[in-house]
Design a protein around this nucleic acid. Structure first.
Lengths: 227, 227
DNA sequence: CGAGGCGTTGACACCCATCAACATGGGTGG
DNA sequence: CCACCCATGTTGATGGGTGTCAACGCCTCG
């Protein structure tokens, strides 16, 4: 399944022109590791990718997740090495793209150039919002905000089924996204469940009361810059 | 004082060609507010700028700070409105730049285009590192990491005097950068001071033992992508 | 001289982490 | 088909890190 249909015609043309091959990666395998050079640009065709950092003490922080249509390693045009791990959380298929450097990219493949710029700007905005969540929201607000964001990003690529989110994240993944402990993720989901606001199941979350979630976390989707 | 001398010749040429005028902003004044359109690109010539978000409950989170040489509002080329406040923490002087859109920017002003791309990539990398700090480091590690980052960024623009950092940040600013309370910032500085690792004074911080700071926070400057 | 910003310190409360134990379910191999 | 194992989720007890509140001191500036 792909959402390339929802992208602009120019981008599709450029991606087709530059696509070299398709890369299939099985679940829980690294795509790029910290301090490794990421030689190519990719576009996610299907699957979930984590950008994360592991700390010495065993702690892990997931910085962001990439979904179908997102571009990976955009900064490989700029930097020698990645500062983070890229990991396939599910089976992932990537389109490898041979991007020329500098102005040639903008002249001959304006759609791709725009997509890269857009990705970097959107990523920046998402990370800034994540800084706010991690720094100044309590665990209930963090979780509610993350659920709102998931719903917004997934429905933008047509992957929401009514009010249930289908996702490959377990509670440990949520812990490493929200910066809290696994056990506290569990307790926080229970609070949402007791209030009939959201319900965690394996592989899916039912959003019973989306207005409540947005209210709890003061969610404003503007930072996602969708459509 | 300016560090334009340290920038590449091409960038200097492009900035000169596109510079419209200089904007002076007095301390603690907003440059751009949340949801406001930032119509122009700026380069910081002198002073400190905060990118922050205020929450309803009075909480505030500082997402990043911009120093001389940094570019502001790079994403105004992409998005209609900013999701964050930009505030002058000190008297700030900005160079306003009239940036053309799209490929013309890359053709005729490659230095500026490169600087913008570089800024966005560096900012992205810094924010990702901040997510790790806020999510998975305790207050001592957070503070030590922030001090290492400050030293690295300031010495890259020639603003370190030996081992003392001169900065306009009070303990409340540190609280809003680190995502902890003012009082805990104070306690944490005291711990560093008791260990003779760093010493807070008004307007300056003495780094007594930089190796220790780096060790506490497992600091690796790679993410700053400085030269 | 007073006022306000900022830093410092202590007492106390609470959110959340840690540890431990147990439940559930799916997969694997006998 | 059953026994076992492992991943994951659930729940309770306990402790520590951090937030909140309050009071006080210092310094600057008007």
């Amino acid at each position: 399944m792909t959402n390339l249909g929802s992208l602009s015609d120019v981008l599709v043309r450029d991606v087709k022109a530059l696509a070299r091959d398709r890369v299939e990666i099985s679940a829980n395998r690294a795509i790029v590791k910290e301090n490794e050079r990421c030689p190519q640009i990719y576009m996610v065709e299907s699957g979930w990718v984590f950008r994360s950092r592991g700390l010495a003490s065993g702690r892990r922080q997931i910085v962001n997740y990439a979904l179908p249509g997102d571009i990976l390693c955009a900064d490989s045009l700029l930097f020698k090495a990645s500062s983070f791990d890229l990991t396939a959380r599910t089976p992932v298929s990537l389109i490898r793209i041979e991007a020329p450097l500098g102005s040639e990219l903008f002249d001959r493949h304006p759609g791709l150039a725009a997509a890269i710029a857009w990705t970097m700007g959107q990523e920046d905005s998402i990370l800034a919002e994540r800084v706010v969540s991690l720094g100044r929201r309590d665990s209930l607000e963090k979780l509610a905000h993350a659920l709102c964001e998931l719903e917004a990003r997934l429905s933008a690529i047509g992957q929401m089924r009514g009010r249930t989110i289908e996702l490959p994240l377990n509670q440990e993944d949520f812990a490493d996204i929200l910066g809290i402990s696994v056990i506290h993720v569990n307790r926080t989901f229970r609070r949402l469940s007791e209030d009939k606001t959201a319900e965690y199941r394996k592989g899916a979350i039912d959003l019973l009361d989306r207005d409540r979630l947005a209210e709890i976390s003061a969610f404003d989707p503007a930072y996602l810059h969708l459509e």
